[in-house]
Amino acid sequence: MIELRGVSKVYRVGPVKVTALADVSFAVEKGEFTVLAGPSGSGKTTLLRLLYRDEVPTEGEIRVAGFDVTGLRRSRIPQLRRAVGVVFQDAKLLPGRSVYDNIAFVLRVLGTPRRDITPRVMQTLKAVGLSARAQALPAQLSQGEQQRAALARALVKEPALLLADEPTGNLDEAMAEEILYLLSEIWSRGTTILLATHRATLADQLKRRTLVLDGGRLLKDEE
């Protein structure tokens, strides 16, 4: 599902070069639940952004869900992103739209037939336990609920791969556990998951394969 070979990413800030990732190589098979752990600034977010082609690597090759991401033409980026769901630490819900509309918005922009939208949105909301909050505005939700709505938005297009960038970063322990439980549920239904977190305890708690990044280098790859 994911394959990186010798991937580096260097940002230029004026005359200064900042290495965000250095010679990173690993592979994630279809159906795996993998944790990408490391302290803040270790390169986790950069790595995820390379995977959904929000950034281009300075060196190396990347393949995601059958797409050669490195050589992907701009016109084909939408096709890659339809195969990949992304959630962030900040839920990034559209404030003026209800939970239902935030999720339906994805299906509408992707051209889903109108008759299919409501059943798919409601089914996804049910899967994340938000059916009862469908008409609520994001501001009326707790942070945990907002993160669940963001998960629903990422999942409603049924992606093969889910990239989660610190989805529990803003949540207390109980809410974070809820989200982790939800991610496990999603994974058990066949979605490949790559979860980035700075919380070492969380990686231990999940007991999944863990890739440890530090200073842009892959230090450990352990089951």
Binding site: P78, R81, R82, V86, K92, F105, V106, L110
Partner: peptide, 16 residues
């Protein structure tokens, strides 16, 4: 811009 960011993130084409 937030909407457009989401649109691009979920794979909407530039035409849409």
């Amino acid at each position: 811009r937030e909407e457009m960011e989401i649109m691009r993130l979920v794979g909407a084409s530039e035409m849409v």
